[in-house]
Simulated assay, not measured.
Amino acid sequence: MSGQITTRTVEANGLRFVIDEAGAGDRLALCLHGFPESRFSWRHQIPLLADLGFRVWAPDLRGYGETEPKPQDVASYRIEALLDDVAALIDASGAREVVLIGHDWGAALAWTFATRKVRPLSRLVIMNVPHPAVFARVARRSLRQMLRSWYMVFFQIPGLPERMLLARDARAIRRAFAGMAQDKSRFPDAALDRYARDAQRPGAMTAMVNWYRAAVRHPFMNAPWPRIDVPTLVVWGEADAALGLETLEGTDAYVADLTLRRLPGVSHWVQQEAPEAVNAILTEWLA
């Protein structure tokens, strides 16, 4: 079956990326996960994308999961290094066509990659993260969104976030999913255990938090944002506790060909909590 998932290691940009893979051919669907996730977050979409004719790669991103090494300095997580990772993975794939799919931090990375045209893309799929320019504007004006984003400030404290997130067998990591989800049955203990194990790998938690530290110390959201000319799909769970619906307003100013699909009653973890709905949207839009 084309949708059977295997795991492999790909060397790119000086790192050994561990990747879940399915499908074959030179049409690549590259799936970028968020915080505090891993490649495991795409388990429901990988077989579908393979059945749609793509070779699917879902890597543990820099600092996450089984990808090694895990740099511990903040500068290694500047947006330029992360963009270079994505470009190196695309180059290593040898694909002639690339659909870039991102959720959470992976979506912020995908937005930036498409805007800067680091490599040609045929399509862009974004899940539950606003365009960085829209988020920056809303964050400056909205006290409510500032309060929702409190953790970004907390993560700037050296050492303390890591200790708190890993305490009591990574209880805070588990609660990030089970606590925010509307349909908690989508996050059984086995799934929570997987995310806890990934976060508990040596050096992983500091690396994961360093994505936020680098974004503050080396900001990129206020840079110029030319309009994206790649067809773009935004899938949004409306019950997102971290990002308000106002962060969607004005997205069309930055995207020439935008399709927006909103899912009521679905949390930030949209592709895991509502995989049937998300997969149906992907099938329709990519076909």
Rank of each mutant, 00 (worst) to 15 (best):
F17R: 02
V56S: 02
G159V: 08
L124T: 12
D73Q: 06
A280H: 08
A170Y: 00
L30N: 00
W269E: 12
R55T: 10
V278E: 01
G203P: 08
L192T: 07
I228R: 07
L245F: 10
I228F: 08
L30T: 03
E68V: 14
Q45D: 06
A114Y: 01
V86M: 11
D84C: 06
N279K: 00
L260Y: 08
A88S: 14
R141I: 07
V138A: 07
L248Q: 15
Q4N: 14
P264D: 09
P120S: 05
A191F: 15
G3V: 10
C31Q: 10
L30W: 01
N128Y: 11
D193S: 14
A277C: 01
V270T: 15
D240L: 12
R137W: 09
G250L: 10
P161W: 08
R174P: 01
F187Q: 02
M180V: 14
L52R: 02
W105D: 04
T7S: 12
D240P: 09
M152I: 14
P69D: 02
R148C: 02
G237I: 01
S122I: 04
T232Y: 07
K184H: 05
I173C: 00
L89S: 00
R39S: 08
S267L: 11
L147A: 15
L160R: 10
A107M: 12
K70V: 05
W105L: 12
L282R: 00
D85C: 13
G25F: 11
R16Q: 15
R186I: 06
A108L: 12
R39N: 03
L263M: 13
M208N: 08
P59V: 05
R186P: 06
E273I: 08
F154R: 12
A107Q: 11
Q200T: 03
G65V: 01
L248F: 10
V56L: 03
F154N: 12
K70L: 04
A58T: 06
R197I: 06
G237M: 01
R43Q: 14
F35Y: 14
T232E: 05
V98I: 06
V118Y: 05
M164L: 15
G250C: 12
A170N: 01
V98R: 02
P188R: 09
D26E: 15
T7F: 07
E249F: 10
N222I: 11
E162G: 05
E246F: 13
R213T: 04
Y254V: 00
D85H: 09
